[in-house]
Nucleic acid binder design. Structure first.
Ligand SMILES: [Mn+2]
Ligand SMILES: [Mn+2]
Ligand SMILES: [Mn+2]
Ligand SMILES: [Mn+2]
Lengths: 221, 221
DNA sequence: TGGAATAATAAGGTCAACCATAACATTTGG
DNA sequence: CCAAATGTTATGGTTGACCTTATTATTCCA
């Protein structure tokens, strides 16, 4: 009847593809990096995913999700983000740890449990990191924002979402108060990939550019 | 630092040992049966578990959990039963399906999540099937009851727990109202391993002996 | 007490998901 | 436009957790 249960590894590859680029092609190197495997391993895995019709790989051009692969990926993301809500809102787990714990649970969650959980939570629209939660069919409204790293000096922005997944990165951002809903002003952008100087609340914060790439913001007017 | 994460398979072998016999030795054949693998496979796995110091195997005498193995097993059971509570009480999942869904989640649950969940649930003492939930240290008070299959004709008993794990068995028992808390009377025990005739509420129910072995009861007075 | 049932061991496979090393292909920026 | 960086493919390994078939050992009860 249903899908013969995809492995955790399979689900993580598909999810990583969406997290890395939405619907764009992803280079195997990026995938490998994200998943902490060698490029050769990622290549092999992509071949297997291709054989299952989940991705299509154009050599030297990157990997893209098929319709089917995208559906699976969005479903994993739905489970992931629903668990994030539960862990944060009900179990009172640390904001910075919620992603990693949810990332285990997501692979152990049957469709019936997913839907019962969504219902229990009141069908939330966003996770604690600010990202939209796909609906049962996998569709969701992408955030209408820009990367903080692309904001202009002088801009005052509101954080829509934090896209980091590594616990240490999340912890660092949490400490600096870089959280969804937070307003801040870009005071200065240092040259040579230098840090952004931000005014967050009453504090000045220096944020490395690559960290700023994890932050999705909306310009205020 | 902590244990290097035991595989799902490892956790299931250890849990099965407790479920099958508490602290008694388990024959590899029973283990194999329960886990749906061949005896040869169970043997190999038991060897690996032995190498990790989780069990000790006396050929022809059965397998027993070491101290360490028992601790792990009880911890898995704790996670399992806490999830059963959550799924049943909060997500309103079917009683008969709760075990199988919890049996996936149990392997994906970090200690921090386990404790936060216990707290959220109000540190329940029993799961929906009536079994005690081990505390953080793995200790729990075993049920003080007998198998329904050993009850005498004429006995009136109260169901303490249902130890079945297969969803179809649980569904069958649920349909017959064989549930924790239920009172019933043993009307007749057919010869030659024949079924027990029970008076459950206002209904008469015929229950096969091997099914009755899943039911733990307490004689009323 | 001897044979059937059960258990254990041996031997040889499979499969998914990783690894390393090496050779080769393509892209791309300086 | 060419060389370095990146990506791909080929080979050959490993590990855990399964499998089958065959042989041997033990138990235990009729
Ligand atoms: Mn995950
Ligand atoms: Mn399980
Ligand atoms: Mn072998
Ligand atoms: Mn090979």
């Amino acid at each position: 009847m249903s899908v013969p249960h995809l492995s955790e590894s399979t689900e993580m590859y598909l999810k990583a593809m969406v997290e890395l680029s939405g619907t764009e092609a992803v280079m195997i190197g990026r995938l490998a990096e994200r998943l902490n495997v060698t490029p050769v391993s990622a290549n092999e895995m992509v071949r297997r995913l291709g054989e299952q019709g989940l991705v299509s790989h154009k050599p030297y051009k990157g990997v893209t999700l098929t319709e089917k692969g995208n559906e699976v990926a969005c479903n994993v993301i739905r489970r992931q983000r629903l668990w994030e809500c539960f862990l944060y809102d009900h179990l009172k787990i640390e904001w910075s740890q919620v992603y990693e714990f949810a990332c285990s649970l997501e692979h152990a969650t049957a469709p019936q449990v997913t839907e019962a959980l969504a219902n229990f939570l009141g069908n939330p629209q966003t996770c604690p990191r600010g990202n939209p939660i796909p609906d049962k069919n996998g569709s969701f409204i992408p955030l209408d924002g820009i990367l903080l790293s692309e904001a202009k000096v002088g801009d005052t922005v509101t954080i829509l979402a934090v896209n980091a997944t590594a616990t240490d990165v999340l912890k660092y951002l949490q400490e600096k108060n870089i959280l969804p809903g937070q307003k801040m002003t870009v005071l200065e952008a240092a040259p040579l990939q230098g840090p952004l100087m931000l005014k967050v609340g009453s504090k000045e914060v220096a944020l490395g550019l690559s960290l700023a790439e994890f932050v999705i913001v909306k310009s205020n007017r």
